[in-house]
Design a protein around this nucleic acid. Structure first.
Lengths: 225, 225
DNA sequence: CTGTAGATCTCGTTT
DNA sequence: AAACGAGGTCTACAG
């Protein structure tokens, strides 16, 4: 890992063309050759960058200024960095990172709802999780008290795409005379108004999921930490 | 901008809960208080981070180790960083960045196709760009040689979502007796096989767009640089 | 290996 | 301010 603080101008050419005027920034060069250009704001996304695999070539321009050329042989992207003044340049050995341990995303939501399907609709019982179809797995396949099939699509944030996805599943599932009629439940922690309208228009029920309440129902020994 | 190279352990609690075991990493603290935890690989995304607005509080644990607590008052997220060994700690004044100048994304593709609609289908002429509907603007509304309406959806990468979007537009537009029948063209630089199948199944034509060729047709004086 | 869906998405633009 | 769409998306996972 090399960290350079320098006044620089950056030009990128790849999927798009982009230009950064001369200013002081932080350049992060990782062990795999990738380069990140960070300013003193924004968020975690760099102003500009090069993804690995790529190689950095250091050179000088005709007027004696330092110029870095970073190229990615796979994508033919290039990043040209002109450095007019260097304030700091240091290298550090970091070693391989053990990586991030996560908990609590959609998969976990699906696990919790699989354990407590009745929170979606009274009397609902699980048939199976990740119920396979030709166009992808249905998150939860359930049965209601009357024995009718219910397909559940789970999202953290419910938007129109999720409704479209569930609609495609329902259309396919309802072609199967052994399952039909299959009704749908669109479950999410948050449902966008347009998604709710579309779902309702298509006869799909919406269920708001309370993640913390589900966690409370769940055995706390399952926690990672 | 403060750059710290240190052996650290990181715990995040917010939308999800995440943990980084003890290892040597780079900590980037921006002027707005945001914090990025980078390892020597991956890509431009940090292992862990805190988005602004947030505040960093430095403290010491009972056993005398340095502990940073970063909190975001808006979202109630917290990032706890335990630093066991610091290899480098430096601060730099960067100033405000002039920002990235972009060129060449979907908007530009739309402009080029608006100028040259006949490249999509022979004899096609533009009615208007960003044709408004109740569920959003249609990228290009055109007329063919016979005077029939043609709705064009433009994507850089054509996937199934784009076909769904165009389908919704067509469904809506075809309810208008003044416009109906409206046919659709799905235009993209690259069209995924599944998207092509879905489009064809729904009677939507697919058009592969050659961005460089369109640029050639276009007046070069429109370039930014 | 390709393709698909999720993301502490981020980042615009528009309503 | 909220919402919708795009991203040089990136990234993990399934087929």
């Amino acid at each position: 890992m090399r960290l350079v603080v320098a006044t620089c101008q950056v030009d990128y050419a790849g999927r798009l063309t982009a230009h950064l005027p001369l200013a002081t920034r932080v350049l992060m060069i990782k062990a795999d050759g990738s380069v990140l250009v960070h300013s003193d704001g924004g968020s975690y996304k760099p102003l500009n960058w090069m993804s690995p695999p790529c190689t950095l070539r250091e050179g000088t321009t005709e007027d004696g200024q330092i110029e870095w050329t970073v190229t990615n042989p796979k994508t033919d992207d290039t990043l040209r960095i002109l450095l007019t003044e260097i304030f700091s340049d240091s290298s550090h050995v970091l070693g391989i990172d053990p990586g991030l341990q996560k908990d609590g995303v959609e998969k976990h939501l699906q696990e919790l709802l699989a354990e407590h399907p009745a929170t979606l609709s009274p009397g609902l019982t699980l048939v199976r999780r990740e119920y396979p179809t030709a166009i992808g797995p249905v998150d939860l396949m359930c049965r209601d008290e009357a024995g009718a099939s219910v397909a559940v699509e789970i999202k953290r944030r419910g938007d129109i795409d999720g409704v479209e996805q569930l609609t495609r599943y329902l259309e396919l599932l309802n072609r199967d005379p052994l399952l039909s009629p299959v009704r749908g439940i669109f479950a999410a922690q948050e449902i966008k108004p347009q998604a709710r309208v579309l779902a309702t228009d298509r006869g799909i029920a919406c269920a708001l999921v309370d993640y913390d309440a589900l966690r409370g129902l769940d055995d706390p020994s399952h926690r990672l930490f």
